[in-house]
Nucleic acid binder design. Structure first.
Lengths: 269, 269
DNA sequence: AACCAATGGTTCAAATAATGAACTACCTGT
DNA sequence: ACAGGTAGTTCATTATTTGAACCATTGGTT
């Protein structure tokens, strides 16, 4: 792990529920030496990627990030492109829909929309990263990822977020085969016990998977029949999102999705 | 310059007008060795801070930044706080208003609003960084900055963006004294020949300057009388923005601003 | 008041990781 | 076949990062 990665890694510890982090907490979170962490924090701060609260001495994300997002979105508007699509799909399905993008071995939410038409809702934190082996989004990305990434994740430790998380590499491998055959992933309780979700992959220009489009709901509403009824629209949404992002869906998967959206074939599992 | 800074520095070269940069161009821009730059780019990419276009091989800003902005804005909403204030002031003054924050030795725009009520407008790129010695925003920040930063900038090279940029350290030092006495800065043609602007500083919780609030217009509309008429409202806006951001205006400056906004004192320069 | 247990931050010899000149490989047009 | 332009890689040298031990300050406890 290079110095740059170590420093950038520090930024990853921030989330909506942990918006500012002190030196000591960073040391505990990372397991790295205090001096090392401190120098990294200082260097990040000098570049505007962190700010230090002058009274608590804790660090929070800095303003440099805002400018970079502004550049990225004004020239390659991922969020802006996904926003209407995700919103529309969530209105259509009456459930929370979110799009996430692959970042290394983790999935990062880009945008989510929830029409909140039901009494219970999934609480979704757009600032929380998701593991690849525990959510429908993660599983579908993993299923369509290249061998290098898949093997790296299968080899690495598979944290048990709940008692229903798949932690056995071979069981996970078998599951990924099913997902590839189905063209999307369903998962329930693997990351949050009360949540069921269904996700389809998004692809980049080179045909490699870059993220996922997912619909999530409380387990009670995530019956097989209901998820099945979402299937065609979710796949269509993923296809549109892929195209909007300048990507291409691999031909065989596109054919599979097209077949599914055809009424004659909707009886398939 | 540490490795981390060198890598983060690469991200700074992106802007609205230069949204993707290839290896060779980076080498030219930075003057660093190709191997070094390449390894930095790869490491940034692995962490999601860059993406490589699979066909042109050029790099663009990656999705990791989007998540970080989401975290920052949902927990420490600088942009969200400044947006209404900047918009309102621009509507009030009928000119482009922008807020920028200090990042190291450079100023980065956070938000801008332009009512576009005139035939000519200032073109403002929210993704372009600004030097501290050439714009009204930069000058006012420099004037109220701590000695360390001021001396560092005065010592460093002062690039001549136009023929009216102040490049002589002593002339600049004298100018900063005037600005401190006035409580805000006026500048015309120092960064862009056609633009005149007036800026007031923003302060953090510790009373240190953290940025600036500025009104900018084509030189023709930037007469002394008109700028003078903006003065009280600009200072009031900067005071409100500082408070909204959790900061405090130094007492002596607050008194100066209060005196200015008092009708009895508006005749002063 | 003395003490303890936190916190954040600093130092400097030792170890490791970053560096860069030279290299390969690949296009594109001549 | 070659020239000139990309991007990317190698490996001995060099310089930077590292971390155990250190200090400083704060807040709570006896």
């Amino acid at each position: 792990m290079g110095t740059i990665t170590k420093a950038l890694d520090l930024l990853g510890y921030f989330s909506r529920t942990r918006p500012s982090i002190g030196l000591g907490e960073f040391v505990r979170l990372t397991g790295r030496d205090k001096a090392t962490v401190h120098r990294h924090l200082v260097e990040l701060e000098q570049n505007g990627f962190l700010e230090q609260d002058s009274v608590t001495r804790a660090y929070r994300l800095g303003p440099a990030i805002l400018r970079l997002t502004s550049v990225r979105e004004s020239t390659f508007p991922t969020r802006a492109v996904l926003r209407p699509l995700v919103t529309e799909l969530s209105e259509d399905l009456d459930e929370l829909v979110h799009a996430s993008m692959l970042q290394g071995r983790i999935l990062s939410p880009i945008f989510h929309a929830d029409p909140k038409r039901h009494g219970t809702q999934v609480s979704f934190d757009e600032a929380e990263m998701q593991p690849l082996h525990a959510t429908a989004s993660g599983l579908v990305v993993l299923a369509f990822a290249d061998d290098a990434l898949r093997e790296a994740v299968l080899a690495g430790p598979l944290a048990a977020h709940t008692d229903r998380t798949i932690t056995d590499p071979e069981a996970l491998r078998a599951r990924l085969v099913e997902i590839r055959a189905a063209g999307l992933a369903r998962a329930a309780g693997g990351f949050d016990t009360e949540v069921a979700s269904q996700a389809a992959p998004l692809f980049g220009a080179s045909g490699a998977v870059i993220g996922a489009l997912s619909v999530a709901m409380p387990s009670g509403r995530g019956t097989d029949d209901r998820l099945e009824s979402f299937r065609a629209r979710l796949c269509a949404g993923a296809a549109r999102a892929t195209v909007s992002l300048g990507g291409t869906v691999p031909p065989d998967l596109a054919a599979l999705w097209a077949a599914v959206s055809d009424p004659r074939d909707t009886k398939r599992a």
